[in-house]
């Protein structure tokens, strides 16, 4: 059974595209057949992060409008043979996306892949709404700061009301992924704590991705962080998150070198 997963956040710059690429690659490494779909029409980035920007011929809009076949627009990753990219159009805007077109493309992708990962644009407008519209599950990417958390709360409300699943009276399964988590700043109380975030969002935690230079380095070389440096802290955190998405239960931790802090985090404060 194919799963359609939307990676969303409301706020921009929190790490949706990075997380889409990293989770997609990790799921593909684990053996699933994965396609990552860029919904950020007009401001596409996923092709860069995936290192496929020089191979884009057709895009999502071409497929929804029937100009190109899905097979023509899909780009296979050079490193993982079961990882594919469906890029967005850079020359159009979100108005070029139609509900009917997206429905057809998602239905088509469901027949060909195990995981369809939709990289949502920021905001709550048409692009973001259509990216989540046909999702079975959602990863809500949140930074440990108040504006990001409030925007995530808003997006969760929309996942519960504006998706096809919600309209049928079902629930989109939601996961919170905390990114850019800086353990030393959190220890000094300069960031929202994990407990605070989870209390506000009342949604299960998928993983905690530490703030790291490795993420920037990976995007500069055009590789998902889980492929460019699999041993790095963020890569291990993403790999754990991907395994949790597959249904494995793995103890939650912030992969970091500082063991003392990890212990402190694991031995969570009693709220």
């Amino acid at each position: 059974m194919a799963k359609v997963l939307v990676v969303t956040s409301g706020k921009g710059g929190v790490g949706k595209t990075t997380s889409t690429a990293a989770l997609g690659a990790a799921l593909a490494q684990a053996g699933g057949k994965v396609v990552v779909v860029d919904f950020d029409v007009g401001l596409r980035n996923l092709d860069l992060i995936m290192g496929a920007e020089r191979r884009v011929v057709f895009d999502l809009i071409n497929v929804t409008q029937g100009v190109a076949k899905l097979q023509q627009a899909l780009i296979r990753d050079k490193r993982l043979e079961n990882l594919w990219l469906l890029p967005a159009s850079q020359t159009r805007d979100k108005d070029a996306l139609t509900d009917d077109g997206v429905r057809r493309v998602i239905a088509d992708l469901r027949t060909k892949f195990d995981w369809v990962i939709c990289d949502s644009p920021a905001g709550i407008e048409r692009g973001a709404m259509l990216a989540m519209r046909y999702a079975d599950e959602a990863v809500i990417v949140t930074n440990p700061e108040v504006s990001s958390v409030r925007d995530s709360d808003r997006i969760i409300g929309m996942l519960d009301s504006k998706t096809v699943k919600a309209e049928k009276g079902e629930q989109v399964k939601k996961h919170v992924l905390i990114t850019r988590y800086d353990s030393s700043r959190a220890a000094r109380g300069e960031m929202l704590s994990i407990d605070d975030i989870l209390e506000i969002l009342a949604t299960p935690l998928l993983g905690i991705i530490p703030e790291s230079q490795d993420v920037l380095r990976a995007s500069n070389v055009g590789a998902p962080v889980t492929l460019s440096n699999a041993a790095s802290a963020p890569a291990r955190a993403y790999t754990d998150a991907a395994r949790r998405l597959m249904g494995e239960s793995i103890a939650m931790s912030v992969p970091t070198e500082r063991v003392s802090f990890m212990n402190r985090l694991l031995g969570r404060r009693a709220a």
Binding site: R150, D153, G157, M158, E199, I200, A202
Partner: peptide, 25 residues
């Protein structure tokens, strides 16, 4: 929970919420 951006209007009587009411709701 009532999420950010949601507006619950019930002019006829009391409202009881079992979860939280988010910032901006």
């Amino acid at each position: 929970p009532v999420r950010s951006g949601q507006s619950i209007v019930f002019a006829d009587g009391d409202v009881t919420v079992l979860g939280s009411v988010g910032s901006g709701a």
